[in-house]
């Protein structure tokens, strides 16, 4: 791949995107290239590791494992870009904590020394969506200019998820009660962003709850789906493959357990951007989604 793009990042993949929704990975690479952002493989990266399931057991191991991933990017001399809120929680937050807490950093480096690595604190971590929104890197206008098949006539609801913007006081995104920046990006694709009740509510899957008590997690998801449907959305977009899994496969599980059907297509923002830039559903492996996206795809033909 060309190495002359203006902005290049180590692409941290995580687990769910490459191993369950590879369309997210493929579209992230292709859509970003069209926006002058190059995503390079981060060789040897692991799970971020899962902030809920893994961090709940032992935070110190969570710090050390995330730090190992950070070291790989430090060795490349590249900032990390990623496409998952869960990964953001681990990779961004541990980077932030280690940069600002000497005691924590020393502890982590003691462990990393056993595998001949050292965390130095030389890189930054970004969610790809925030890079798209950032005028210095890309900006909404550039995203709009890259569109060749506007999503005109569709209504798209946005799920921000939790771990990108919250906790607000430790992040840099501002308002977490009713943010609108992702809606701006959706609007840039020609779709109409719709507002719905309790937009910032969690998908229900986080903190290990999906694995611990599936029905409890699904009940939270179900509440969101009711609110989104009520607003007349044709699809839901998000920036987290784990939320995507919960909304997408979750709809099948909700049908099985609660007898309710929503048929709401769930698309990662990169998949949505891919469609708007003219990628075909096959190039995005949309058929891997549990919920049939045909209704939405027909609207944009």
């Amino acid at each position: 791949m060309a190495t002359h793009m203006e902005h290049s990042y180590a692409f941290f993949l995580g687990c769910i995107a490459p191993n369950r929704y590879p369309g997210c990975e493929a579209s992230a690479i292709k859509t970003s290239a069209k926006l002058g952002i190059e995503l390079l493989p981060l060789k040897g990266a692991s799970c971020c590791p899962a902030p809920g399931a893994f961090g709940s057991i032992d935070l110190n191991v969570w710090y050390a494992m995330a730090a190992r991933n950070l070291c790989l990017a430090e060795e490349m001399g590249k900032d990390i870009a990623l496409i998952c809120n869960g990964c953001y929680k681990s990779i961004w937050e541990v980077n932030h904590k280690l940069k600002h807490n000497d005691e924590l950093r020393d502890g982590v480096n003691e462990v990393l020394a056993e595998i001949d690595m050292q965390y130095k604190g030389t890189i930054n971590v970004w969610h790809l969506a925030e890079l798209y929104y950032d005028d210095k890197i890309c900006g909404v206008k550039k995203v709009a200019d890259s569109v060749t098949r506007p999503l005109t006539g569709t209504k798209v609801a946005v799920h921000y998820g939790c771990h990108l913007m919250k906790p607000q006081k430790d992040r840099h995104f501002g308002d977490t009660e009713n943010p609108m920046w992702l809606e701006e990006l959706v609007g840039a694709l020609g779709a109409e962003p719709v507002q719905y009740r309790n937009k910032m509510q969690c998908c229900g899957a986080g903190g290990g709850v999906r694995g611990y008590d599936l029905l409890h997690a699904l009940d939270i998801t179900n509440e969101k789906l009711i609110n989104i449907k009520e607003a007349g959305a044709d699809a839901l977009t998000e920036v987290c493959p784990f939320c995507q899994l919960q909304f997408d496969r979750g709809q099948v599980e909700i049908a099985q357990n609660f007898g309710k059907k929503y048929n709401l297509p769930i698309l990662h923002f990169n998949e949505l951007l891919g469609l708007a830039q003219g990628m075909t559903p096959a190039e995005l492996a949309i058929d891997l989604h549990a919920v049939d996206c045909t209704s939405f795809l027909e609207k944009i033909q």
Binding site: S56, G207, V209
Partner: peptide
Amino acid sequence: LWLCTTCYS
């Protein structure tokens, strides 16, 4: 204890 989704609301 295990029902928190860690949503940070």
